[in-house]
Amino acid sequence: MTTTTSSTPVTTRPSVASLATDLLRQGWTGLRALLVLTVVLGVVYPVVVWAVGQLAFGDRADGQLVQQDGTVVGSALIGQPFDAETAPGLFHSRPSAGGYDPLATAPSNLGPSDPDLVRSIEQRRADVARTNGVAPSAVPPDAVTASGSGVDPYVSPAYAALQVERVAEASDLTVGEVRTLVAEHTHGRSLGFLGDPKVDVLQLNLAVLAAGR
């Protein structure tokens, strides 16, 4: 054990050689400590969290996979790229800087005064307004901005509401029926006060597809 006793404080400046020896000895102790701690913190701890998590919460720990007709089509927590081109008859997701690719989760990282960002926001506003037949001023912020994760599974209730008539028109459902589906997939703030209200786009679209048959 390389410790100095409290009664003999270091008064002389130790030589470089003794510094190197001490450091090597501490490094050797450090290596042994690191290996022991790696077993406890790097193997046992995550495996225990996994085992208890699986027992206590089941598939909640598995990424909440979503099925359509018995086949897994995604995760409830990971959004998918529904937009005017690919899904004219369904609810659209927010813009994404990474194209909803879970292997490249990222925001746009464009600065608040970036002229390109301002231009694309204006362009998106015009596009969303035209696609849904509403006034540009009615388009909410989340419809024209990319998320932080690039895989945001939600849109605001305002953006969902604005799309109801278009979705109803494209399916065999009435506006009232689509509105009911939206309401079923709308979640208020967590515990009533945390975060913002949200609509789950993937599961809402699956419900629209199922009801439209």
Binding site: T145, D196, K198
Partner: peptide, 14 residues
């Protein structure tokens, strides 16, 4: 331009 500082933010967090 967007009506709120939502660029780079998650819908549910705001």
């Amino acid at each position: 331009a967007a009506g709120a500082a939502m660029e780079g933010k998650e819908t549910q967090l705001g």
